[in-house]
Design a protein around this nucleic acid. Sequence first.
DNA 1: GATGAATGAGGCTTCATTCAT
DNA 2: CATGAATGAAGCCTCATTCAT
Lengths: 217, 217, 217, 217
Amino acid sequence: MTLRLAKDGEEVRVRKRTRIQSLRERTILDAALEVFSRFGFEGATIDRIAAVAGLSKANLLYYFRRKEDIYLGVLQQILEMWIEPLEAMRAEGDPGAELRAYIGRKIRFSREHPMASRFFAMEILQGAPRLEKVIRSEIRAHVEERAAVVRAWIEKGLIRDIDPYHLFFVIWAATQTYADFSSQISAILGKEGLSARDFARAEETLSDLVVRGLMPE
Amino acid sequence: MTLRLAKDGEEVRVRKRTRIQSLRERTILDAALEVFSRFGFEGATIDRIAAVAGLSKANLLYYFRRKEDIYLGVLQQILEMWIEPLEAMRAEGDPGAELRAYIGRKIRFSREHPMASRFFAMEILQGAPRLEKVIRSEIRAHVEERAAVVRAWIEKGLIRDIDPYHLFFVIWAATQTYADFSSQISAILGKEGLSARDFARAEETLSDLVVRGLMPE
Amino acid sequence: MTLRLAKDGEEVRVRKRTRIQSLRERTILDAALEVFSRFGFEGATIDRIAAVAGLSKANLLYYFRRKEDIYLGVLQQILEMWIEPLEAMRAEGDPGAELRAYIGRKIRFSREHPMASRFFAMEILQGAPRLEKVIRSEIRAHVEERAAVVRAWIEKGLIRDIDPYHLFFVIWAATQTYADFSSQISAILGKEGLSARDFARAEETLSDLVVRGLMPE
Amino acid sequence: MTLRLAKDGEEVRVRKRTRIQSLRERTILDAALEVFSRFGFEGATIDRIAAVAGLSKANLLYYFRRKEDIYLGVLQQILEMWIEPLEAMRAEGDPGAELRAYIGRKIRFSREHPMASRFFAMEILQGAPRLEKVIRSEIRAHVEERAAVVRAWIEKGLIRDIDPYHLFFVIWAATQTYADFSSQISAILGKEGLSARDFARAEETLSDLVVRGLMPE
DNA sequence: GATGAATGAGGCTTCATTCAT
DNA sequence: CATGAATGAAGCCTCATTCAT
């Protein structure tokens, strides 16, 4: 699955893509994720990204001609990672098991890719200027498919009647918060960061809430 | 209740903050909230804030000498708004009613103060550099108080055993998302923005999930 | 007479125009004329203009926010100077005298404002990107008026039949060349620059050629 | 006839220039003429020239090591084209016929090589930094030879007494203007470009003016 | 209080040119 | 021949902040 981030009709202007040296691209995108997720688009500087990537600024600009291109490059990748977990939820499965698994995948994503999650959050927080189109088309379609799965469960009486969309919004928010708001969470928990145990407990709490909360009466 | 935003040992640089807050200060902070919440700290410019406030840049800087001061001024206010809803949750009340009411207050906040919510979210997303201290002290204490309330309910067998902190994290995330991520949500719903009905449905969905999910077996 | 240099509908973005300190504007435009006329738009740097004007670059940019604005400011002025001499040619006058006077005014302009002439020449040489619209409207109308004068003379039998437009083109080229191509001219004359005498002789040569060349047979 | 463009004592840096000029060099110089004449020296980029020439930038730089070299390469060629028409004017011929023929050749040059004309004009407009030396030596000598021809005519009473140099300046200006200032001329004529008819009329107007203007009384 | 002027620092980007293969 | 990589220098422009009135 590849989602295109169009920019006024243009393709994303990544430069080459050929040659072994487009290993550089990876390095750059990784560095960019680190910097963008921490400082936001405006707060990030090309200089800083270059420094993290271990390249000269001019060299970095040889691969991506504009800051925006780097940003879009990162966004593209994350977008795909964001949608993936949703795909696996199947109508044939047991609702409880399927939902627990989905929540598990989302929590794992927060634990393993917190920067990606924050990057994505920042983009949306600012009004999703570069994502809106994709969300309204591809992503919306993906979500609708999964909403249909939930509706099927409801019709079969496997779960209580609930708005599938808002169910997703709750799950997204409650899982992503462990990446996006981890600084607040760990501060409140009085820790320096979130441990595997914290994530496990988060997963358990949310899963229980959702699965029990959905049990038909 | 007044929470102090310390800044690395310095005094809080917010200028006066007497009881009768200068009308201008209010105007400025409102404008600043609008601009910061949309563009982030780095993306916001004093010029833009001044324009929204209807002042000249120089005049604005007469009231707040540094960009950071404006930001802290806004943050200060929001911080208080953020904590308030939590206060009202009382141990004596019925858990279901209390939680529904709390969720209601949080959702209302998202509906009525989306910019404030986003401002706050952005700050935390960036690692809460200016908030960490306050969170680790005052806020944490506040939360602990309410966690005690939840624990009391659990002990009385009124609700199922659950980690109170994670319960809060879920509620915060799931309510705030309707402000912070509203661009994504409305895009997925195929709308141009969220209506009162959307918020009502969000509140209902979340409340049901939480309250039913917490019912003792 | 004021000719507007529109820029995609926008007004020319000169900043203030108020206050005594818009004396700075004059200083800047003078400096800009000097630099642009020598190096062209691309070759000129804001730094250099600022240096000539005796201002810091940042200060200069306080008055004109973009290089283009400075350029347009200069162009605006020159445009008016360029048209002026044409105005005075009157149908009632004696053709010979009128033409000699016009040529005289044009030669004087080349002598007194060589930089303005070269600036104008450069703009047109590059395809008149910023002037085309004005030329096709206002300037064209001005020229047409004077062409009518020439036609009147022809009809009265005062001068030989000639295309008035091409007559103007010849006069413009032949007078402006003493400013625009002065480096070539003085090099060929083996001098270091053109003297008043050179200009006088140029004027005489051209005037004689034109006036005699137009005498009815 | 070959005119050398010296560059501050250095050797001319144009690369080979053997009889069989590399096909590539021609391609490059043609592209360079196109780009330089449109954007000026500073405004032109090697990338753009390479693109027009259908080469990679690096490859282009293999043929000409510096931007300046490309420029000089173009200038060299144009210089020769510029002088040529002058050569043919002969003392033995009839002045009227000779002058008409010369004007015809110059007008034809403007029509057939407008970019070359503009390139040349730009160089001179900027003070002819790279041409001055050549002009003061070779070109000046060439012109002096032809001035002698004119003087011979004057002495024989075939034409009126006139300054031969200024006569040339007028002819050059008035013919080249149809290339250099064509954007202005066509704008004033309300056309999109100059047609063969326009050039014919230009030639006729100028020739008549000059020839009649020179007739002895 | 209010504001016009001024500026240093820094950010993005372009570009000629060099280097290695 | 050809070209992908790399880079230093410079140019335009933004912006927070200071200063003087």
